[in-house]
C-alpha cells in the first residue's frame, strides 16, 4: 500500500493511501478532533459516516472538515481545531 506523508499538528507522520483522517487519528491515539465552540468540550468521531459533523478538523487550513469522510493526501496538513478554528 502506498505510503503517504502528512503533517498532524505540526508533526510529520506516515499514513496510507485510502486511509481516512479519522482512522489515522485513532492510530495515533488521538480521539478528539476538536473542542466545541461554547464549552470547549472535546469531540471526536460519532456517526463515522459523514452525517453528524462532530469530527470537525482543520485540513490544509480549511476549518470544519469531517475527519471520518476525508481521506489523507500526500503533504496534507491536519490540525485539531479549537472551537471554530482559525482563519487561514
Amino acid at each position: 500500500m502506498t505510503q503517504i506523508r502528512v503533517i498532524l499538528n505540526g508533526e510529520s507522520i506516515t499514513s496510507r493511501e485510502g486511509q481516512s483522517v479519522g482512522a489515522l487519528l485513532l492510530e495515533h491515539e488521538q480521539r478528539a478532533t476538536r473542542t466545541t465552540r461554547q464549552n470547549a468540550r472535546p469531540r471526536g468521531m460519532f456517526c463515522g459516516i459523514g452525517i453528524c459533523f462532530d469530527c470537525l478538523i482543520t485540513i490544509n487550513g480549511i476549518t470544519n472538515q469531517r475527519a471520518c469522510v476525508t481521506n489523507v493526501e500526500e503533504g496534507m496538513t491536519i490540525q485539531t481545531q479549537q472551537g471554530s478554528g482559525a482563519i487561514a
Binding site: Q19, A23, L26, E27, G44, F46, D54
Partner: peptide, 23 residues
Amino acid sequence: WDLPGVMTAGGVQALLKGQKSLV
C-alpha cells in the same frame, strides 16, 4: 454521550469495515 469514544454502532462498524480501524 458527547464524549470522544462514544460512537454510533454503525460508525464503529463503518470504521472497521471500511478502514480496518478500531475505535
